[in-house]
């Protein structure tokens, strides 16, 4: 599959001002500082991939996304999206991409129903009638918008609006859709619906998705994770390869008929303990040991659960290691 996005050693800096005193002093005295938002970031994305860009606030995710669309321009380095330079060929590029900015900069007309925005987009991108009807039906069914898309946008909940924003960004058959924190403040059912819609659209329409997000549940089904921190790319790989970076552990949860006995607290690191419950972190080799399997058959244990560390845990480990030792790129 060809690369649809190529980012090569991109650098971006911003000028900002710092106040040097109180209300009256700041009237006359300000210090100029330069912030490096992106520092030699490189990566590529293939057609049909779903890539999540993660990072803390101020890591450079949104800046990078805006540079891919041509809203911001790199100071150094090269960007190619669908073979085009976003800075020079922005208009040609945005004809083929869709963008969701989340609730901060909506595309939907506030006082009109979403269907009016969809019709506006139809006119704007010159979508033929049959194609428009087909795609509209597809997305309305996919996201269950039958009773929603004809109501005034201002009357919809945030979740409903974000689903409609998703439709607005996808209805003109874009090759790539960029989504900048699309699910901030959105309820769980709507987040799941959008996540499933991304997978469905990727499968049926071969659309590439680039998503910046803080919400871990949004990236459960992505192909790849790019982690930015302080403008640098710190990780680029799958969830599995991320878990491979850290000492392997599994968590074991045990549910008891009566009170937890001390012997059940010694086989690993206790993460949580209650009267009839304990959660322990152990080395993966432990769960294959005979004595462990026998222990699970103990009548005192009424239920148990064994799981690999989830993404939240992995990410928190990742951020901890970035903070503590300036690990550099992985």
């Amino acid at each position: 599959m060809e690369d649809v996005i190529v980012v090569d050693n991109v650098v971006k800096r911003f000028k900002t001002y710092k106040s040097k005193g109180g209300a009256a002093k700041s009237l006359f005295n300000r210090e100029k500082t330069v912030v490096t938002a992106l520092d030699k970031v490189s990566f590529s994305v293939k057609q049909g991939e779903v890539v999540a860009m993660l990072g803390r606030n101020g890591s450079g995710k949104s800046t990078l996304l805006k540079m891919l669309i041509g809203i911001l321009h790199p100071e150094e380095g090269k960007i190619r999206v669908l073979g085009l330079d976003p800075t020079k060929d922005r208009i040609k590029l945005v004809q083929q991409v869709g963008i969701v900015f989340g609730s901060t900069h909506p595309q939907l007309w506030w006082d009109l129903p979403p269907i009016d925005t969809f019709n506006y987009i139809k006119g704007m991108y010159n979508i033929p009638d049959k194609q428009f009807e087909k795609r509209l039906k597809y997305f309305i069914d996919l996201l269950d918008l039958k009773k929603i898309h004809t109501r005034q946008t201002r009357q919809l909940s945030l979740g409903e609006r974000m689903k409609c924003e998703f439709v607005a960004a996808n209805i003109h058959s874009p090759k790539i859709v960029f989504m900048d924190e699309p699910t901030i403040g959105v309820d769980l059912p709507s987040r799941v619906a959008i996540s499933n819609a991304i997978l469905s659209a990727r499968k049926e329409l071969c659309t590439t998705y680039i998503i910046t997000t803080h919400v871990v549940e949004d990236i459960a089904n992505v192909d790849r994770i790019i982690l930015l921190d302080k403008g640098k790319k710190m990780f680029d790989g799958t969830q599995q390869s991320m878990s491979g970076l850290f000492k392997k552990t599994v968590t074991v949860e045990l549910y008891f008929a009566g009170k937890v006995e001390p012997k059940y607290l010694r086989f690993g690191k206790v993460l949580r303990k209650e009267d009839t419950y304990v959660k322990v972190k152990v080395n993966p080799s432990v769960i294959k040991q005979g004595w462990f399997i026998s222990m699970l058959h103990d009548k005192k244990i009424v239920n148990y659960k064994i799981a690999e560390p989830d993404l939240t845990f992995l990410l928190s480990q990742m951020y901890r290691s970035l903070d503590s030792s300036n690990r550099g790129k992985v």
Partner: peptide
């Protein structure tokens, strides 16, 4: 406030 981003995502002058 960045609201102009939306204008730059449209394939027009």
């Amino acid at each position: 406030n960045g609201g102009f981003d939306q204008a730059l995502t449209k394939p027009y002058d």
